[in-house]
Structure formats: structure tokens, C-alpha cells
């Protein structure tokens, strides 16, 4: 086993363990902090698989921006830690568990049965310059659409935020 594959398996264990801890935490705050570890681990796997620019983006956007947004919301809403947080009733759970298990088993079987999947991946690196040139030469239209999506999401988030504020002000005025 060469050092690269050792690093990959180590990172895979870290990612799986921290994700498993995160989805079973009672308190959302703890879950988000474990998820930051998971996303940093995923970013390092991206680096290992030859995508240094995406590794940086993963850490900046996922572990940085998105998770910090979650943290802000959790702190803003002043949530009380609920008990367990899992839906009750094994009768309700059983079909989902069985169907999910079957599809997981089929996915695992298909991945492992594919003979082309056993070939080792090469160690290559996509330089950010090449990636950016490729992005803006071949996918410039998709970049425009993505920017529109971000703009619309921004407007939508602002609208949802302002609407409640206005109503609260009206209610406060009525109370006065």
C-alpha cells in the first residue's frame, strides 16, 4: 500500500465517522461542527484525487460559508435541544430501512462487480489555470445561468427576510 492510498483510506474513515456522528447528534450546533470536520476531510480527498482548486472551494464555500451560515441561524433562533430527534415507531421505519438497504446493496454490488472499476486511478492534477480556461471556453453559458441562480436566490432570501420584518413592525405598531 503506497502512501497515497493509505492517506485516502485514512481520510475516508475520518469523513465517514464524522458524518455518522454529525447525523446522530441531538444538538444541531454539535452536528454542524462535526460536519465541518467531514467537509474538510472531503476537501483533502478532492486534493488527493487531483482537484486542488475544488479542494480550496470545498473548504472555503462548504466548510467556511455554508456551515457558518448554519451556525448563525442556529444561534439566531435560540433552539432548545430536543430529545433524540428521531421519528418514533419501528413500523414506520421498517419499510424505509428495507428499501434503503436493498438499494444500498444493489449499488454496492454494481460498483464492485464492474470490472473497469478495479483499475487504479492515476495521480494527475488539474491545474487551476486549465480548469478556468476550460470552464469559460466550454461552459460559459452555464456560468451565466449559475450567476442568475445565485441572484434569484439572493433576491428570494432577501424577500423572505423582509416580509417577516414588515409584519412584525405592523404587529408592534398595532400593539402600541
Amino acid at each position: 500500500m503506497n502512501p497515497f492510498s493509505f492517506l485516502f483510506y485514512l481520510l475516508a474513515v475520518i469523513v465517514l465517522a464524522s458524518t455518522a456522528i454529525a447525523i446522530s447528534r441531538r444538538h444541531v450546533l454539535h452536528a454542524v461542527v462535526y460536519l465541518i470536520i467531514s467537509f474538510i476531510g472531503t476537501g483533502l480527498i478532492f486534493y488527493l484525487l487531483g482537484a486542488p482548486f475544488l479542494a480550496l472551494l470545498e473548504i472555503i464555500i462548504y466548510a467556511g460559508a455554508i456551515m457558518v451560515l448554519f451556525l448563525f441561524i442556529v444561534m439566531m433562533l435560540r433552539l432548545t435541544p430536543q430529545h433524540a430527534g428521531w421519528k418514533a415507531g419501528i413500523a414506520q421505519w421498517a419499510p424505509a430501512l428495507v428499501l434503503g438497504g436493498i438499494s444500498l446493496a444493489i449499488a454496492g454490488f454494481m460498483i464492485l462487480a464492474d470490472p473497469a472499476g478495479h483499475a487504479l486511478l492515476p495521480t494527475l492534477t488539474a491545474r487551476p489555470v486549465e480548469l478556468g480556461r476550460f470552464l469559460f471556453q466550454k461552459y460559459w453559458f452555464a456560468v451565466e445561468i449559475a450567476s442568475f441562480l445565485l441572484l434569484i436566490a439572493l433576491v428570494g432570501a432577501l424577500y423572505l427576510g423582509r416580509q417577516g420584518e414588515k409584519k412584525e413592525k405592523v404587529r408592534a405598531r398595532e400593539e402600541l
Binding site: N2, F4, S5, F8, Y9, A12, V15, L16, T19, A20, A22, I23, I45, L48, L49, W86, K87, W93, A96, G100, L104, A107, G108, I111, L112, D114, A116, G117, H118, A119, L120, L121, P122, T123
Partner: peptide
């Protein structure tokens, strides 16, 4: 030479199912 493609896919599938379990339950 890093790892077989299938191992990376398995990791992705496991992560996906963890996320799905979290979103559903």
C-alpha cells in the same frame, strides 16, 4: 496510482445514504 475507482464510489454511496437517512429521519 491511488485507489480503485470502485472504492471512491463506495465512499460516495455511503455518504449519500447517510445524508438521505439524515434528511428523511
Amino acid at each position: 496510482m491511488i485507489v480503485p475507482f470502485s472504492h471512491v464510489l463506495l465512499l460516495a454511496v455511503l455518504l449519500f445514504f447517510m445524508g438521505a437517512a439524515c434528511a428523511v429521519s
